[in-house]
Design a protein around this nucleic acid. Structure first.
Lengths: 344, 344
DNA sequence: TTGAAAGCGCTAACAT
DNA sequence: ATGTTAGCGCTTTCAA
């Protein structure tokens, strides 16, 4: 028989401890009023004996402040996002927060619905990696808390009037594309193709621009442009679309790279001998691809830490921007002999 | 100026509509009392005009019922779990639920803390893929709602007295291991090794048992047993530990398989010619590994649907068990010529 | 069919 | 230092 199926409430604790309910709150929250040592002990014991756990729903309602942060991503099966989600969840756990997760499935409609749900849920902070750029900020116009915007371009329109702070994480898509392409050019590849996503998306266009500029800087003609979804399947199909005279490919996300590698292998083209490959937007799991994949990566653990600090109100970075420095990690797919990081 | 920064409440709507607050609730919830057509219209219009959105926190507190389900997994970077999480999130979205996500980071301590947080959050349902078997059910002993237990062995102790229904998804680890191993044996491989996880875990031991039994059934001696973490790195290291006379390897999760494939390649051993590989616990992404990875898979989309139905109280399966039928998907790593599914 | 009002469990201002 | 109590926004019983 389980205490008639009802979880013990603060009142049960107060009764057992022989104190008022307010004191119980003061103990739990460590404030806002002081509590004598003796009383605190009594309360703590009562809590232990009853097995009391505060109801966060009631806490949220009363305080107008929840202990949940939300993360919204376009695709959870993207290794970069999975790893990032994990890092964020870790930081949340360390700080007594709960992470609400939304996977928009690359669908702008779903994305808005999830933002809607998060706001109804009164989340205390939002981390948003948008399906597309620029982010439809109107969907969080009245969100009264800090929102971390993960791929809002600097060139985007200024945010509409908004209720809460908006912190931008400046992930420079252009720069990452430039770095990866430049590295391929450094391997004396002359026909460097790009596999990128739908050009209706601004981030795709930024990546394209980075690729082009790097080529131009290296005095190379632009190679083949292949537009395909940001998925393993997209990369796989790209392999069969690739012209024979291309000797290198820059892919714009890890999923495409994974698919491309598989596709090239099935077609009997060897990487990196026949054709070199480098990508952006991968993580350390790229090390375990065959061949290991050279990639421009973001320090996701560090980033997660900074973001949570920001959401907790412990500002670490000046202004409304968190800078991120991409790192080029050399592995085998580009033709490097001795892999390793290069801070370019 | 944003309506002095306060989200409109039900009272604002009632005032604007010239009705009572109760009626607003009746409209929103479509019950429990009827509302005349005219009044309903007035309310709906007021809702539209104010931009009112119900506060789910308050709803939860009042109704004692939240609209959140929680998913707890040991490792979000495991492709199988990422895909499963995505499928669940999708179903939740379709049904107006929000998915809370927990990644225990393969740590039993974290796992319990997350369960604790979920219960404080008053989640309306729980899906739990445990770090280890059997699940520490005591952590949810007083959870008053349905919990779906994803890898609770049938042989486990009966659950302790509990408050809510406990539905077991019978994922037969033994059977999956058996199927994969049997398939390798069918390729006339005679020295079939296993790469499995810590044998302190029951699921590892079940997988080991399935492997052994399949070998014995095929009149083969047990091959090498390699115990390593369920991670890419673990699989990678396993490659270098593998004896030269092994001509096949069965890995017990996708991460290990990915690492193993990479490790074997770096060592110059070709798959499947030198050595065949098959795994359990992978997903369709195995198709894009190099070589494509033969695997025993679970129908995760279907499973997610069934689970959400169950959590919504629309029982589809009889009893307290949801059966899952694993599927062997033949790809190239095992030596098959023409890949495809085999319902064995 | 509608409205008034008593909670849901908690926070925190105010009183003691 | 501790207690009392008015909300937080909503659901739902009960009365009209």
């Amino acid at each position: 028989m389980t205490r008639q199926g009802r979880r013990p409430t603060r009142d049960d604790v107060a009764r057992k401890a022989g104190t008022s309910t307010a004191v119980v709150s003061y103990v739990i929250n460590n404030g806002p009023r002081p509590v004598s040592k003796a009383t605190r002990e009594k309360v703590l014991r009562a809590i232990r004996e009853t097995g009391y756990r505060p109801n966060t729903v009631a806490q949220s309602l009363a305080s107008g402040d929840s202990d949940m942060f939300a993360l919204l991503v376009p695709d959870m099966t993207n290794p970069f996002l999975a790893q990032f989600a994990r890092a964020l969840g870790h930081e949340c756990l360390l700080n007594g927060k709960t992470l609400l997760l939304g996977d928009a499935e690359d669908n702008a409609q779903h994305e808005v619905e999830l933002l809607e749900a998060f706001q109804r849920q009164q989340v205390a902070g939002l981390v948003w990696y948008g399906v597309d750029q620029p982010l439809p900020l109107k969907a969080i116009q009245h969100f009264p808390r800090t929102a971390i915007l993960l791929n809002q371009p600097e060139t985007a329109d200024p945010a509409p009037t908004q209720d809460g702070p908006r912190i931008r994480v400046t992930i420079d898509e252009y720069q990452q594309a430039y770095m990866a392409t430049e590295h391929l050019a450094g391997h004396h590849r002359h026909n460097i193709a790009i596999v990128t996503g739908p050009t209706t998306r601004l981030n795709s266009r930024e990546r394209l621009r980075g690729w082009k500029d790097a080529l131009s800087k290296a005095d190379l003609e632009p190679g083949q442009e292949i537009v395909t979804p940001y998925s393993r399947e997209g990369g796989f199909k790209a392999a069969s679309l690739l012209d024979d005279d291309m000797d290198a490919v820059f892919t714009t996300n890890a999923l495409q790279a994974i698919g491309l590698l598989a596709g090239l292998t099935e077609l009997g083209r060897t990487v990196p001998d026949d054709i070199a490959v480098a990508t952006m937007n991968a993580t350390d799991e790229a090390r375990y691809l065959v061949p290991s994949l050279t990639s421009v990566q973001l320090p996701s653990t560090m980033l997660a830490m900074k973001i949570i600090q920001e959401l907790l109100g412990q500002k670490t970075s000046a202004g409304n921007t968190i800078p991120v420095t991409p790192l080029l990690v050399r592995r085998h797919s580009c033709g490097c002999e001795q892999p390793g990081p290069v801070n370019h």
